[in-house]
Simulated scan of single mutants.
Amino acid sequence: MWFKNLVFFQLTDTEQFNSNDLVSKIPDFPLRECGSQEEFTFGWLPLIRNSEQWTLANDRCLLMRAGKEEKVLPSAVVREAVESKVAEIELMEGRRVGRKEKADLKDELVFSLRPKAFAKRTDIWAYIDLKAKLLVVNSTNQSMIEQLFKHLQHTLGSFPMAPLPAQVSPATVMTDWLISNSLPASLETGDEVEIQDTSEDKAKIRFKSLEPLSEDVTQHLQQGMLVKQLALKWTDKLSFVLNDDLTLRKVKFDDSLKEAAFNDSQGGGLADMDADFALMSLNVREFFENFSTWFEINEQ
């Protein structure tokens, strides 16, 4: 259950937010199956399949899980159906099919094919930390994140959330770290970095299996390029790739934390999840205290 991505959003009005209200309302807005003509549905899911456990609370943190069910119509199938129909019309009626008519044909065919399409489910995990005033999401998929926000608002009527208010440019900060070899004391560089030109071309160079502090990297930065992604390790607890939008990918918690959670667990699915969540949320909260100082993130 350990998150593989960390995307932070700030809770702007925790005094008006009632976690008990959210806990009680979540079961009333579950994920349901797509109707025959629905493109997708979105809703809450139990933390464990076929259970009635919708949330998990620990030290002012609340874990939840949502999901999206969508009808999958492969573009190749739609394209083949449209081309077949266009060829039939042109042969039978002896005329060319125009762009607008093709678009209309595509809409009609999608409408007729959708009820036969397979349904695919994707889930998204998140938790609210009232002490740190954060919403933490285990996804970098913007579409899924937007659906999660909308569903939180739909469930509660409103949800007091905003992007992190960083006072400095993350790309500039990371670039300065590498040029001057002045990372914060709790950080070490990993072996992955992506840099980007500041010109209109936005040319990118990605280095892998290479020390970001090497001359191959820093010479490009000294010529004006900026760090877009940087692999880092925080203390002995967490490694990740930090993006210039302050999202974290490829998050890996140290095995010692997972072993400690295993030892704390009483055994069983929910007990294991509870132990994992307790240690994960505690360490993420501690990490964010450092993170917020690096990028001058102020409370709103």
Rank of each mutant, 00 (worst) to 15 (best):
V7I: 10
V7C: 13
F8C: 03
F8G: 02
Q10H: 13
T12S: 14
D13N: 14
Q16W: 04
N18H: 12
N18W: 06
N18F: 07
N18I: 09
S19Y: 10
N20P: 00
D21P: 03
V23R: 11
S24R: 11
I26D: 00
I26C: 01
I26T: 01
P27E: 01
P27S: 00
D28E: 12
D28R: 09
P30R: 06
L31S: 04
L31M: 05
R32N: 08
C34R: 04
C34Y: 03
S36Q: 13
S36L: 13
S36H: 06
E38T: 00
E39H: 09
F40Q: 07
F42T: 01
F42H: 03
W44A: 05
W44V: 03
P46F: 06
P46N: 00
P46W: 05
L47D: 02
L47F: 07
I48R: 09
E52G: 00
E52R: 10
Q53A: 09
Q53M: 08
W54S: 03
L56T: 00
L56Y: 02
A57G: 03
A57V: 10
N58T: 10
D59I: 02
R60M: 00
R60S: 07
C61M: 04
C61R: 08
R65L: 14
A66F: 08
A66G: 08
K68M: 14
K71Q: 12
K71A: 09
L73C: 03
L73I: 14
S75V: 06
V77E: 07
V77W: 09
V78H: 06
V78I: 15
R79W: 08
E80W: 00
E80G: 01
A81T: 01
V82F: 07
E83L: 05
V86K: 05
A87D: 14
E88S: 06
E88G: 00
I89H: 08
E90L: 07
L91R: 15
L91M: 13
L91V: 08
L91C: 09
M92D: 13
E93C: 01
E93I: 02
G94Q: 05
G94F: 03
R95F: 09
R95A: 07
R96N: 11
V97C: 03
V97M: 05
G98C: 01
R99L: 03
R99G: 00
E101N: 04
K102R: 15
K102F: 11
D104N: 11
D104S: 13
D104I: 12
L105D: 10
L105F: 08
K106E: 13
L109P: 01
V110S: 05
F111Y: 14
F111E: 15
S112K: 15
S112A: 08
S112N: 12
L113K: 03
L113G: 01
R114H: 06
K116P: 00
K116T: 05
A117F: 10
I124S: 06
A126K: 11
A126S: 13
Y127C: 02
I128F: 07
D129M: 03
D129E: 02
K131R: 13
K131I: 09
K131T: 14
A132Q: 12
K133S: 15
L135S: 04
L135D: 05
V136T: 03
V136D: 06
V137L: 05
N138Y: 06
N138Q: 02
S139Y: 10
S139P: 11
T140I: 12
N141G: 02
N141D: 15
Q142A: 10
Q142R: 08
Q142I: 05
S143Y: 07
M144D: 07
I145A: 04
E146M: 10
E146Q: 15
E146D: 15
